[in-house]
Amino acid sequence: MTHAEALPAWAALLTAFLVLVGASLTLIGAIGTLRFRTFFERVHAPTLGTSWGTGAIVLASSLLFSVLGSRLVFPELLIGVFVSITTPVTLMLLARATLYRERSEIASAAAPDLLEDPGDRPT
């Protein structure tokens, strides 16, 4: 890690802090997926990692390369923007798929009752 020696102390400490914050938020989110009991509770857990977990690590990387190159570089922020736009889309699609599956399971569980009395069956 020769590039770390070239960093000023404040930048190194800030980068270290941001990386640790991001990684611990992601870890807590992953523990959440283990502890929660139902799917709709588990949906909330990965958002810890995808919101400020990703945000902090991306900021750390951006800060490090900006100070090293002594110019502002923001391509890492592109990842942050991309993740924060795409994660809601995937989670929404998954939540809707789950709702759809649970509803159709309830519907198919009710189907035998309808079959016993064909006279009432809705067409």
Binding site: F40, V43, T47, I85, P88, M92, A95, R96
Partner: peptide, 15 residues
């Protein structure tokens, strides 16, 4: 609004 609600931990947009 859907993006805001879902990306906030603790709330999720369902339908």
């Amino acid at each position: 609004l859907a993006c805001i609600v879902t990306s906030t931990p603790g709330t999720a947009w369902v339908e």
